[in-house]
């Protein structure tokens, strides 16, 4: 299987996984845990698109930079998401 097809399958799995994780809130899983899972999966999807669809696997230094900035951004989103849970 070529890397592009693997990337596509990974994106399908990660997308389905995000939706399944989101549904766990109704099963009693803590929203904070669910939030971490959802944003982690989003970061992983973004990494796959940048690397394989947009071709950054050919430019490792740019790929590392994009991954780092997107990772920090997802942490910012997670922080904003968790503030109400922490403060109440």
């Amino acid at each position: 299987m070529n890397p592009l097809t693997r990337a596509w399958l990974a994106l399908l799995l990660l997308s389905g996984g995000s939706t399944v994780i989101a549904a766990l809130v109704s099963q009693g899983v803590a929203p904070a845990t669910v939030g971490v899972g959802i944003l982690l999966f989003s970061w992983m999807k973004a990494r796959v698109i940048l690397s394989r669809y947009l071709g950054l696997w050919q430019a490792p230094s740019w790929r590392r930079g994009f991954n780092l900035v997107l990772g920090i951004y997802c942490l910012l989103l997670l922080g904003l998401y968790l503030i109400p849970a922490v403060t109440t």
Binding site: L11, S15, S18, I21, I38, I49, L54
Partner: peptide, 23 residues
């Protein structure tokens, strides 16, 4: 052209979880 399309894709994978999933 494909790069533009992948950008649309990339934005959606960030937008979808925040708007639809983070309850």
């Amino acid at each position: 052209g494909a790069a533009f399309w992948h950008m649309v894709d990339l934005v959606w994978v960030l937008l979808f979880p925040v708007i639809y999933l983070l309850a």
